[in-house]
Design a protein around this nucleic acid. Structure first.
Lengths: 189, 189
DNA sequence: GAAATCATTTGCCATTTGACAAAAAGCGAT
DNA sequence: ATCGCTTTTTGTCAAATGGCAAATGATTTC
């Protein structure tokens, strides 16, 4: 829990009373590898903060292929923000890649925080904006480079992820086939 | 100018006094094709709203190749939001692809609006969040599909852009060479 | 309108990547 | 250790894409 509070304080100030309130609303929980945090077709009902573990965002494209769109690391919020905010069904899945420890807030609790804590919205906005910017910056270079360069870039950006995720997820994140990724690895090592 | 106000009102309410204030701060201006709205290495000093015309965001990758990262259409704000907010140098260029009509706000005026108009930050946040989400959604599919599919998807998403932008920009946006794009076009038509 | 300049298309060949299938390696349950 | 299952690697071949250079087409300038 301190982990989360520390993280929030990077984005704005909170007094002890506010911190206590946040802690009250928060629930620590765990996800097993391959469990879903949220699913396509359902309206997301909670916001999560990743204390430990890796999750991924994925969807099925119109050929029915599973595409991994994003990986999250520790110390990040995770939620399909668009669907959550607008109360509409998700178009994507959020799935645990490894066993995970999360702190979650139900939607009503999350809204209470917004109504009770002056400056909460501001903190949340900063976090979301940063996360979205990061997403854009991480995904964009994947388009203009060849597969080997993309893999090398991935290893640089996520040095501690590469050995914890299955090849198939990584391949679909990089937009290449599993065999191609396997060959690339062979050539590099 | 009505164009801008109309757009803002989609995201929140503004009374006449507030609208007048916004109008006072706004400057209508034009950019010629290939002019830069903002440049890499400089700290962005203004926020723009595109009334007419197309702009693109581009940068040079570490091989020195120019990469088009994004196109903007009419009725959108344009700014390197990260650099603008944090007062740091841009890493990318924003350039007019066609002649453009813009409405711009200087940074001090923009901040005045934030300090004067209750709810301004809220409106701006909604707009930025939407824009960032859109960016992610537009760029992501470019990774997992083959070049022809990407081109077809581009034509669907930007039906009125395809014939107004040079092939070279589009090729670098799609992450393929100019010759490949030319061949793809040949095969499709 | 001719020359100069820039953008797009095409040809040729090398390289990368994909599709498919089979083999090998890893892993858990017994 | 062995079996059964899944994941990763490898092989073979075909298709897609890139690199380079030349040709063609379009636009601007004088």
């Amino acid at each position: 829990m301190e982990n989360l509070i520390e993280y929030l304080l990077l984005f704005g100030n909170l007094n002890q009373q506010q911190i206590d309130l946040i802690s009250q609303k928060a629930t620590e929980t765990e996800l097993r590898k391959e469990d879903y945090f949220s699913e396509a077709g359902k309206i997301p009902r909670q916001v999560g903060y990743v204390v430990e573990g890796i999750l991924r965002v994925c969807y099925y494209n119109n050929k029915g292929e599973e595409v991994t769109k994003y990986f999250t690391e520790e110390k990040q919020f995770i939620v399909d923000i668009n669907s959550f905010d607008n109360n509409v069904s998700s178009t994507e899945y959020i799935q645990a890649v490894t066993d995970c420890k999360l702190i979650v807030f139900s939607k009503p609790d999350w809204e209470d925080l917004s109504n009770t804590i002056i400056g909460w919205d501001n903190i949340v906005n900063k976090i979301i904006r940063k996360a979205l910017l990061q997403k854009v910056e991480r995904r964009s270079p994947l388009i203009s480079e060849d597969a080997t360069t993309r893999y090398l870039a991935f290893m640089e950006k996520y040095p501690h992820l590469v050995n914890r995720i299955p090849l198939s997820y990584l391949a679909s994140y990089l937009g290449i086939t599993q065999s191609s990724l396997s060959r690339i690895r062979k050539n590099i090592c």
